[in-house]
Design a protein around this nucleic acid. Structure first.
Lengths: 200, 200
DNA sequence: TTTTGAGTTGATATAATATAACATTCTCTC
DNA sequence: GAGAGAATGTTATATTATATCAACTCAAAA
């Protein structure tokens, strides 16, 4: 994916319709997408144009997206898309560890740990990521605290439980939102501007 | 017990069959339901006949129940019941802490910690219960490991996050299922009941 | 006792989330 | 280019959850 050439999408070019008209994402996101591409290649699976497009849409959002929000955005480039297209792609991205599902929001976020740090050592470990979900601004932060993981492993072991996957969702107020509420806890009209993050 | 003001609502006279024909649950469950009743009274809310019935159905199940499964069971005593009845009741029971929702199953379990141990100290703390969910037999075990809780509190604090509620769902194989798989992977013949729903 | 009002439940409709099933197209290998 | 398997398109439907308003119940005030 060179940086110089832009695909001539948008146009009634000579050939049949390109089927896909991938939006061009920011450089940073293209970098992440290229990394995702390499991770897929390493696993012997394919990050197709559609999958790349959907992952890109998720990376471009500062908030978790639901399947139907994603569908709506996808349709700007993919007019006829239907729910199964999105859900299948989400399944693929979940299986390859490129995204996570936030269960309590029925929505999805890119996995910052696989994409932001380039660890090719995805040898297959226990998935035990934690999410901090701000109930005010909807922002989600992904954590991977060893202390939480080990406490969970320990508890599972004590119960004779063979852990395969865990979901840890922590809901509350992020630092910015908690800060802006500190002085005026009851004032709903209060601005909260500092933490402006596109309320949901 | 102090006053019967709340009790009288559902403790109708024994003379005739009321419009509601509340199933009679086992003694143990009636004990738990009575405890739930006292907890509600202490909070100034009412465990009505309908709520008691639904909580009883949940206690009588050895697996999490979805809203529509619950509805189906409820209809044996409550023929005309519709989804909002169930969801409203579930909301009430969730708010009073008598049940939990298992997000990844979209289903519900009684809170064993509030009902099995008679702690009237509703002090109101952080909800940070953990669930061990067996993907083979669907059995759910509720934990309340201090080590997990404190690891989460610590991580939240470090992130400047004001925790309000957390969901910890640990999926894998329970001791019984893990044991039966250890030697023979296909043998499901242990004591737990067959899974009632396709695991996700 | 009657009124009243909050809380609860009933009833109808519909929204939001997710999957089943099968047809078509694409991509890679030969 | 033909065949096989993966990926996507397409239609229909299942599952989970909520909005809305009407009717009823209970307990306390008038």
């Amino acid at each position: 994916m060179g940086s110089g050439s832009n695909m001539s999408y948008h146009m009634s070019s000579m050939t049949k319709t390109p089927a896909l008209a991938p939006d061009r994402f920011s450089d940073r996101m293209e970098t992440l997408l290229n990394r995702a591409d390499r991770l897929c290649a390493a696993k012997g699976v394919r990050l197709t144009a559609l999958r790349r497009q959907i992952l890109g849409l998720m990376l471009a959002s500062d908030q978790p997206l639901g399947a139907y929000e994603l569908l709506e955005r996808l349709q700007t480039s993919h007019p006829g898309a239907a729910p199964p297209t999105v859900y299948r792609t989400l399944d693929f991205l979940l299986e390859t560890g490129l995204i996570h599902k936030i269960e309590r929001l029925s929505s999805f976020v890119p996995c910052t740990h696989t994409l932001d740090h380039d660890h090719s050592h995805e040898g297959e470990g226990i998935h035990a990521t934690q999410f901090l979900i701000c109930s005010q601004c909807s922002h989600v932060t992904e954590l991977e605290e060893p202390a939480i993981l080990s406490a969970i492993l320990e508890a599972s072991r004590n119960a004779g439980f063979r852990l395969r996957q865990s979901t840890i969702e922590i809901e509350g107020l992020c630092a910015a939102c908690a800060g802006s509420q500190a002085g005026a806890d009851k004032d709903h009209g209060h601005s909260h501007q500092e933490s402006r993050r596109t309320p949901r």
